[in-house]
Amino acid sequence: MTTTAPIHPNVHVGEPPALLLDGITKTYRSKAGAVDALRGVTYHFHRGSFTAVMGPSGSGKSTLLQCAAGLDKPTTGTVLLGGTGLHGLSEVALTKLRREQMGFVFQAYNLLPSLTVYDNVALPLRLTGKRPRRDEVHQVLDQVGLGGMARRRPAELSGGQQQRVAIARALITRPAVFFADEPTGALDSTASRQILSLLREATDRAGQTVVMVTHDPVAAAYAERVLFLSDGLVAGSLDRGTPQQIAAAMSDLER
Rank of each mutant, 00 (worst) to 15 (best):
P74S: 04
P113V: 05
Q143M: 12
S158Q: 12
I195Q: 03
D72K: 06
A191Q: 05
R39I: 10
P16M: 12
E15A: 05
R200A: 06
L71T: 01
T63K: 00
M212E: 04
V53S: 01
T214D: 12
K61C: 05
R98F: 06
V213W: 02
I167K: 00
R151M: 14
L38S: 13
R39V: 09
N110S: 11
R174D: 11
G147I: 01
R164K: 07
F106K: 01
A223I: 15
V79H: 11
R225M: 11
L146A: 05
T116R: 05
P243S: 06
R39N: 14
V13L: 11
A18E: 01
A18M: 03
T128S: 15
L111Y: 08
H8W: 00
L71R: 02
V35N: 15
L127R: 07
L253I: 13
R174I: 02
Q244Y: 08
M54S: 06
L65N: 00
Y118E: 04
G85S: 14
S230T: 13
R200S: 11
A180K: 02
F104Y: 15
N120S: 02
G70T: 03
A5M: 04
P9W: 02
Y28H: 10
R39Y: 09
L127C: 04
G147Y: 03
P17Q: 06
R99E: 05
T2Y: 10
F50S: 01
T63G: 03
V144P: 00
L112C: 13
G23M: 08
I172P: 00
G58V: 11
A170W: 05
A220G: 03
V117P: 03
L64E: 09
F106I: 04
A37F: 08
D22Q: 06
L20S: 11
D36M: 15
A37L: 10
M149Q: 15
S251T: 15
R255V: 14
D142V: 09
G33F: 05
M1N: 13
D239L: 14
H215L: 06
T203W: 01
G58R: 10
N110K: 14
A5G: 01
A186G: 07
L171G: 10
R131W: 09
P154H: 02
R98K: 12
E136P: 00
I7P: 09
V121H: 00
G207N: 08
T209N: 00
D252C: 14
V137P: 00
T75I: 02
Q143V: 10
Q245V: 06
M102T: 05
R169Q: 03
